[in-house]
Write a protein that binds this DNA or RNA. Structure first.
Lengths: 340, 340
DNA sequence: CTGAAAGCGCTTACAG
DNA sequence: CTGAAAGCGCTTACAG
């Protein structure tokens, strides 16, 4: 069943069928209704590759994510939620979604861009990739619109979406302060990663605003994984004046801190309060359950799609520099590790 | 840059360029090499929609997963790993991957099939959807090859891939038996779900083989979520002759059992050993870390792709009934909840 | 081994 | 408001 067959059966030309199905204004109401009914009865669906060929646009967005990131406890839980959010938001905007492959041996630097051209993709969404990834460079430098979640781009038609890491960290500190804590330490992630340094900056600012003393030994270094959190917490608790509360920049590290507290014979939250960041699945499963700053995966996915659509709507005549980053609010989820 | 331009520059016809680039035998070695070099220099990549239109095949597979499943602690962690595995395996086989959208209002029952036809998809991979999903029915009943992970199909060109749930459960019991346990109870999932009843069957069989008594009150019912595991474990531990070990059919329930044990003042693994199933992220984060039967996401994804390719290679002349299910081995991961 | 030509299924100026 | 015709970028019998 193709458009010619459908035209024959409706007694009009293929041009009219095409116009009716595409909702063009020139077609008379009666004709349109008749054709649409027939199309639906016969289960006709237009051939997308043919449409793409002639319209020179595919209504399709490419999706890139990096498998190598999956081993990182930090990102694993997010990808899926964002994937779902992206999928939903795109389909509501009538875009299709094509998954791009991690480049193989052959000319990996331009592989993404080549794939975009081959499939006539109109834009790309990148999930949590290091911004210095070489394979991403030629894509970001091109005229292809790129929206990156937690990926800092520099190309002419790019935009970055991320959680409000600083505000999230501040909310965590304010929560602890409101509970009466005055000696609050933090466990940070690797300082070159934006989520890590933004959360640390928010932490410092909150302490300042609240007039909390922040001795440098209250800033302990971790790597986002659990063991580093346990180690860092152990050191914090061994200080001459140990903190009464710890804000960890990631949930895995926060869970490590819970273990360190248990080993030190401290009861959480009575002797030590702990707040994490991300709201991974495990946060609700450990005991005490972890108070944490949740990222809104859905909102992140939707913001990425919205930002991408703005670039698409602006067209090639739009601005030739990175758009203003989209910052998505976080939400503090209070659980057992700070009260109740 | 299109094939005509490339033909002009190489001084041959578009037909010859096409043949050279597609590796057809008729082209002379010299011509092929020359054309390929030029194509690479000029960054030419063939237009896939045009190829799809003329070849009537897209080399593209559709991917379906159900967002509604994501709230279930059970499936969440798997989807992503399987997605990655599917993506990698497909790209190694030179297939592209298109994500299909959860059907909207309009005629949802046939939405997937329509999408397949519109995009000329050659097959579909379905991740963990209930097999009775109405939207899946018309797809499964069609001639479109469908491979489902943890999805039981009934259509003419379908195949199911899943972990060896029974063998995994047996391995868990054997492990506990080898540690000296003789009173082993289980917490099951909802009995109508294949993973739940297959794991229970494996558990029963293992007990039988090892000559373990299995009083009916040692089979406690859960729903795969943590709270149900905690409740079930509490009841098991309150029995006149409580078990010394519990095999939970899912990690979240196993973690619930750990909490119940702690509440009852029992030390794990000394007073109670616990084994879970799935190896979710949290399994390695809780304390004691959870011994569990890990599903091999990578192998599941690869098996789905392999099974699908067999159907594709067989073509429409192939068998007109569901293929033999592909069963993927599991692996027991021993952690603190049973020893060490 | 190579080329001219037809055609895949659509959309869209152009003409009426 | 509608139709005839051109053309999107390829591949593939067919002929040489």
């Amino acid at each position: 069943m193709n458009i010619r067959e459908l035209a024959r059966r409706s007694g009009v030309s293929t041009a009219t069928v095409s116009r009716a199905l595409n909702g063009r204004a020139e077609v008379s109401e009666a004709t349109r209704a008749r054709i649409r009914r027939l199309a639906s009865e016969l289960g006709y669906a237009p051939n997308e590759p043919a449409r793409t060929l002639v319209r020179r646009r595919s209504d399709t967005i490419g999706l890139i994510w990096d498998s190598r990131q999956e081993s990182r406890g930090l990102h694993n839980p997010f990808l899926l939620g964002m994937l779902s959010a992206v999928r939903t938001a795109l389909s509501e905007a009538d875009y299709h979604l094509m998954v791009l492959t991690t480049p193989g041996e052959e000319d990996p630097d331009s592989a993404y861009l080549r794939a975009v051209r081959r499939h006539n993709l109109e834009g790309v969404i990148v999930l949590t990739m290091p911004s210095d990834d070489r394979c991403l460079r030629s894509l970001a430098d091109s005229e292809v619109p790129c929206a990156g979640i937690d990926t800092a781009f520099t190309g002419p038609r790019t935009v970055r979406v991320s959680s409000d890491n600083a505000a999230g960290a501040q909310a965590a500190v304010e929560h602890l302060h409101a509970l009466g804590h005055r000696r609050i330490a933090t466990i940070t992630g690797p300082p070159h990663l934006p989520p890590a340094f933004e959360r640390l900056a928010g932490f410092r600012r909150a302490c300042e605003r609240l007039g909390l003393r922040l001795p440098e030994e209250y800033v302990a270094r971790g790597d986002f994984f659990m063991d580093s959190g346990e180690r860092a917490a152990r050191e914090l608790l061994a200080l001459r004046r140990p903190p009464t509360a710890i804000f960890a920049a990631g949930d895995q590290m926060a869970i490590g801190a819970l273990h360190a507290a248990a080993d030190a014979g401290l009861a959480v939250p009575r002797d030590l309060a702990v707040v994490g960041f991300d709201d991974i699945d495990a946060a609700a499963l450990v005991r005490p359950a972890l108070t944490t700053v949740a990222q809104d995966q859905r909102a992140l996915g939707e913001a990425a799609v919205a930002a991408l659509r703005e670039m698409l709507d602006a067209g090639p005549a739009g601005p030739k520099r990175p758009a203003e980053p989209r910052i998505v609010p976080t939400r503090l989820i209070v659980r057992g590790s700070t009260g109740v």
